[in-house]
Amino acid sequence: MLRQFGTNEFLFILAAARWTVLLSLIAFAGGIVGGLAIALMRVSPLKILSATAGGFIQVFQGTPLLMQLFLVFFGANTLGLDLNPWVAAAIALTLNASAFLGEIWRGCIQAVPRGQWEAAGALGLHYPSLMRYIILPQAFKIALPPTVGFLVQLIKATSLAAIIGFTEVTRAGQIINNATFKPFLVFGTVAAIYFALCWPLSHISMRLERRFAAASAR
């Protein structure tokens, strides 16, 4: 017996959107911490740190996110750890975000002109102070637009968590579609929810980028 796509069905999907938002926020927050560590390791003068971070980035950029999800979810189970899909998705997405943000921010750190490093070094600032007071504040401005842009990618990427059984907005859509068989209506609704989340962020990212371009053209 097919159900109709009514208010209840719509609300079910909409309610699941909070899990999409929450998963995105967790992965983003984790990615900020992990990404900063990866970026700092990547630009470190210590070879071992920069090579380790480089390897981490390569692995996570060079494999599909879905495989990373599978590896964390099923891998943990075979190791005897019983991860629920929630935790598995959060871990995999955090690692993935750390790699991508780390690589984005490495570029931003290295985009700070050479002369800034030299002036700070000539004044006798040590590496930690040099990073903290001179390089990172300038890199932060450069990093803002691509970071917000990455958040958009991350929100959309959370849809893959549906495949390991985590009921975020995409999986909620699948459930409702199985009951109503109104794919256009159902997945149109799901897509509209993603769009409502992502579009304002894309817009912000573009505006930041334009403002940054205008500021650096001065």
């Binding site: 002109p113 800034q116 030299e118 002036a119 004044l123 006798g124 102070s129 504040p137 300038q138 401005k141």
Partner: peptide, 23 residues
């Protein structure tokens, strides 16, 4: 330096105060 290399995100005063305080 030829290109001054002042710290653009700091005021003139902060540029001058940073190293004495931190170093």
């Amino acid at each position: 330096f030829q290109q001054f290399n002042l710290f653009p995100h700091m005021t003139v005063l902060e540029n001058c105060m940073l190293a004495p305080m931190k170093v």
